[in-house]
Design a binder for these strands. Structure first.
Length: 427
RNA sequence: GGAGAAGUAUCGAAGUGGUCAUAACGGGGCGCACUCGAAAUGCGUUUGUCGGGUAACCGGCACGAGGGUUCGAAUCCCUCCUUCUCCGCCA
């Protein structure tokens, strides 16, 4: 949610910022309605004040034994007028809210305009591994080593699902353990949230109403229409709601959390042949980091999160790069985003394993999450930030492809071995 | 799943149709006084939001949420949500 006062103050500036993100808006209708709304408020509040004054006199007049029936009949008319105006007002309110709720966040000043093609590489770690033998695709490797069972995954749930088996299961769990260990060492609080969330959670995150059909909705036969819950597409959706409708204190900020959850995504129509395997599934494991900070500290917090996510990939020894996204490539709620992309040899490309973003106060406004300044008086919206740390489903292909050996085995990154019984390779 | 009880500020809690919504009373926090300091004590101060106004200030709204009855609702009625207790079921 954008600050309505900024739109009132300088609609052109706001329009320009949104345009940078590829969102064309015209505020003139909105501002006209806004004025209309305020006029209505003045009108209806005047009537209410009158009604309150009259009502306050009733007990006294009654006590004095005076006839109050004329006041009653007059007030009946006033009440009816109030009702009519209130109805008009709430209609405008709803309309305005809907308009505002549909607007994306504005990009940060240092985020450049344009789409993907304008993404900038910030840093590169390592080099593309070179192989002296014919390399294999990760699907071939994990199937051959019995790590992933795609056939039976499809048997259970259809296309886009798989089953981890044997060393595949262990490697998956070792990755999660490795991530968790790092986050705990960095002082992040571990959260295990519900996986089914209520509608409001999606709204706060900025995913609803626009993208409500892109999540798995859980139909409840008792609900007359729509859905009551949905499967979370990322733990961010849960973590951003932890402090919804709360007033925090400046002294206790920042809150640093991480959560492990599977992520459930429809990914409707997004299948591409080059993404076969684990690159894009309907369910994948991810650990998500999340921070609530003051506005002053959110820039630094974003750098911290990017640093942490990159350090995890670095710790695995995987060649990867960090990119800063151009405005149109940032998701709707975010003002600034970095992606960490790992090298997948078979795709001859880098794939996102983490997306680290600063939402500024956009989500905080939607979820009404504020903090009291240390002066004890002023309230301000918190800033919220999230970053994957990390999604396993693209790390595992990177590991098996970057660490594949000529004999078909795969070396296990050293940091993971303690969770795999000291094993050095999968064969 | 069945039965019952409850939701009022930072916490406990009073209020059961108007003169009781910043909201009694109590606790906590903060400030001041007393003190070498602390405790104790005393005094004061502590919701948010939306409008109007350059401002001082003025007004509206909010008693879990949403409707209804009424001139008037924290209070009466309906629907929903949450919490607690008991029973049933269950990993």
């Amino acid at each position: 949610m954008l600050d309505i006062n900024l739109i009132r103050k300088d609609p052109d500036a706001m329009q320009a910022k949104l345009a940078k993100k590829g969102c064309q808006v015209d505020f003139s209708g909105f501002l006209a309605k806004d004025q209309q709304r305020r006029d209505l408020i003045v009108q209806v509040e005047g009537l209410k004040a009158k009604k309150n004054q009259q009502s306050a006199q009733i007990p006294q007049l009654k006590k004095e034994g005076k006839d109050v029936s004329s006041i009653f009949s007059e007030m009946k008319i006033v009440s009816e007028e109030i009702r009519v105006l209130d109805d008009q007002l709430s209609a405008i309110d709803n309309e305005q809210q809907e308009f505002l709720a549909a607007l994306p966040n504005v990009p940060a000043d240092d985020v450049i305009a344009g789409g993907k093609e304008n993404n900038a590489i910030v840093s590169i770690f390592g080099e593309k591994p070179s192989f002296s033998f014919a390399t294999r695709h990760h699907v071939d490797i994990v199937e051959k080593l019995g790590m992933i069972d795609y056939v039976r995954g499809a048997k259970l749930s259809g296309a886009g699902y798989w089953v981890y088996r044997k060393d595949g299961s262990r490697l998956e769990w070792a990755l999660l353990n490795y991530f968790m260990e790092q986050h705990l060492a960095d002082g992040y609080e571990m959260i295990l949230p519900p996986h089914m969330l209520s509608y409001t959670c999606g709204y706060t995150a900025g995913q609803f109403p626009k993208f409500k059909d892109e999540v798995y909705q859980v139909r409840n036969t008792e609900a007359e229409e729509g859905f009551t819950h949905f499967m979370l597409p990322t733990a961010e959706t849960a973590l951003v709601n932890l402090h919804r409708d709360e007033i925090l204190s400046e002294a206790e900020l920042p809150f640093k959390y991480f959560a492990y959850t599977p992520c459930y995504r429809k990914e409707a129509g997004s299948y591409r042949a080059e993404e076969r395997g684990m690159i894009r599934g309907h369910q994948f494991n991810k650990i998500e980091m999340f921070q609530y900070t003051t506005p002053e500290n959110s820039d630094a917090a974003l750098e911290e999160l990017v640093g942490k996510a990159a350090a995890l990939v670095k710790g695995l020894g995987l060649h990867h790069r960090v990119t800063k996204l151009a405005a149109e490539d940032c998701s709707a709620s975010m003002m600034k985003t970095y992606d960490i992309e790992v090298w997948i040899p078979s795709m001859n490309d880098y794939k996102e394993v983490s997306s680290a973003s600063n939402a500024g106060d956009y989500q905080a406004r939607r979820g009404n999450m504020r903090f009291r300044r240390s002066d004890g008086k002023t309230l301000a919206f918190v800033h919220t930030l999230n970053a994957s740390g990390l999604a396993t489903s693209r790390i595992m292909p990177a590991i098996v492809e970057q660490y594949q050996q000529e004999d078909g085995s795969v070396l296990i990154p050293e940091v993971l071995r303690k969770w795999m019984g000291g094993q050095e390779k999968i064969q």
